[in-house]
Design a protein around this nucleic acid. Structure first.
Length: 477
RNA sequence: GCGCUUCUAGCUCAAUUGGCAGAGCAACGGACUCUUAAUCCGCAGGUUCUGGGUUCGAGUCCCAGGAGGCGCACCA
């Protein structure tokens, strides 16, 4: 029997099940429907076969009788996972299961490998991540997560569009990567005879868009960082960055609260969620606290940037926080915060007023010397967002980047370079601006209660597979 | 990159702690016209991740390597 190129008139299982939900046991209709999907279970019963057909929207039972269905013998010998199209009438069985009583059916694609145990599926994480297509069929909750991921991103777009933000796209291949402290992936453009980096952030080009007149602009895009893998880090991940002219970091606090609460509500119809067993209330407004206050709360130590570097270093020593000889007071303070405070912040909380030393793109604090107007939002002990009042003074920005470049020359692989294109743009004038970055994967993890980033990335990065294992039917066919 | 840990049939897991590698599901053959992880009968299935070593004997102990998970480090 030839496998057809198309199968027309298919209705979704969800649609069919919804329409005929009212049928009583043993009630038969002469309503013809066509459905298609994978055969996920087979129960032979002599001259009668029950099958579970699953499509993207759900599952429905097929009732296949020798007397009334074509090609009955072949149907009996279908394999779990085979794609078929079936047409028939809708009925409910004696035992109450809504079914399609099949009259005609056709094999659309055989499954030469199975999806594991029909009850337990697959649980080996290596198979689940390497062969996500198997995972998606074997584990319903996996499909659910990726459906939710799509909904979350959609809700973010709708939210920003409603606020008047314009979505743009900026280069992934960049001559001078910048906008974050991270090691890039480097590639080569043959025709240009140039090494290019894959972007590590969206920041610099989006600011140039602001100079160009976009007053509210955002991009949701993949960025790439050449770092180790972990349950919370994939080398490519999705960032949202947005910039709003005439605003500052306090505007960004409100915006991120609304954005996250909105996505959460879209998904759960509430803004209170459970994450890894802990209840988290995302209802705005969120707590705001300075880094110094939070360090004091968790350690009882009072530090600030009016202190000498050595005094702060002494506190770090007392707290068993390591730092390097070249670190200034701001870097040491950040180290203290990250080791003693952030891991214990359940949040949501906006941690604000960062040391200037560790924030080369943020604007000087309007009243606190040595600080910039920057905050990070922490939820469930993890940084979810990072935002500042953006530095828009080209002279100051040049000096900051030159410091970065000298750090880079001294061996700091994560320091930035001087990006002349960016500086030239700033010289044209960038309005006062609030900017915000949100890790979308982290947001999805939070809202879907996942602790491993691989669970929210359809095809996460893994080491190259060196051996391919055989499966059963491929050899016997 | 470092530490801990896991790897047995296609899948999910056993194997008396060093003594003949096994079960359920899937597959294959058969019975059964209302099943729901159907049931029943039969049959087949293995480089125990790879390579060394210790031992009369290794899935089990030792060494090296591979892949995964968790933690640390870096970061989001």
């Amino acid at each position: 029997m030839p496998i057809p190129y198309r199968y027309e008139g298919v209705r979704s299982v969800e649609d069919v099940v919804g329409e005929y939900q009212h049928l009583l046991p043993e009630e038969q209709t002469d309503s013809k429907v066509r459905v298609a999907g994978r055969v996920m279970r087979l129960r032979g019963q002599g001259a009668l076969v029950f099958a579970e057909l699953r499509d993207w929207t759900g599952h429905v039972q097929l009732f296949v009788e020798q007397n009334t269905a074509g090609n009955f013998t072949h149907f009996k010998h279908l394999h779990l996972g085979d794609w078929i199209g079936a047409s028939g009438t809708v009925m409910r069985t004696k035992r109450g299961e809504l079914s399609v009583k099949v009259t005609d059916w056709v094999l659309l694609a055989p499954a030469l490998k199975n999806f594991g145990d029909k009850w337990k599926g697959v649980s080996d994480p290596e198979v689940r991540y390497r062969q996500r297509e198997v995972d998606l069929w074997a584990n319903d909750e996996v499909r659910e997560i990726f459906l939710k991921r799509g909904k979350i991103i959609k809700s973010v777009r709708e939210f920003l569009d409603k606020k008047g933000f314009i979505e743009v796209e900026t280069p992934v291949l960049q001559a001078v990567e910048g906008g974050a402290a991270a090691k890039p992936f480097v590639t080569h453009h043959n025709a240009l005879h140039a090494d290019l980096s894959l972007r590590i952030a969206l920041e610099l080009y989006l600011k140039r868009a602001l100079v160009g007149g976009f007053e509210k602009v955002y991009e949701i895009g993949r960025v790439f960082r050449n770092e180790g893998l972990s349950p919370r880090h994939n080398p490519e991940f999705t960032m949202l960055e947005l910039y709003q002219a005439y605003g500052d970091y306090t505007d960004m606090m409100e915006l991120v609260e609304q954005l996250v609460a909105n996505a959460c509500y879209m998904l759960h119809s509430t803004t209170v969620i459970t994450y890894q067993g802990e209840e988290i209330d995302l209802t705005p407004p969120w707590r705001r606290a300075t880094m110094e206050e939070l360090i004091f709360d968790s350690t009882g130590k009072s530090i600030n940037l009016a202190m000498e570097r050595d005094q702060i270093a002494l506190v770090a020593d007392e707290l068993n926080v390591s730092y390097s000889k070249n670190d200034g007071p701001g870097k040491i303070m950040l180290e203290i915060y990250e080791k003693t405070t952030e891991p214990y912040l359940k949040g949501p909380v906006h941690v604000y007023d960062y040391p200037k030393e560790v924030s080369p793109l943020a604007r000087d604090h309007r009243s606190k010397p040595g600080y910039v107007e920057r905050f990070e939002t922490v939820i469930a002990n993890r940084e979810l967002a990072n935002a500042f009042s953006e530095l828009n003074d080209p002279k100051e920005q040049r000096e900051r980047l030159q410091i970065q470049a000298s750090l880079k020359a001294a061996g700091d692989e994560e320091a930035m370079s001087v990006d002349e294109d960016f500086l030239r743009a700033l010289e044209q004038g960038m309005p006062p601006t609030g900017g915000l970055g949100v890790g979308i994967d982290r947001l999805v993890m939070l809202l879907t209660d996942q602790s491993n980033i691989k669970e929210v990335i359809l095809f996460p990065a893994l080491r190259r597979e060196t051996t391919f294992s055989d499966n059963d039917r491929i050899d016997t066919i």
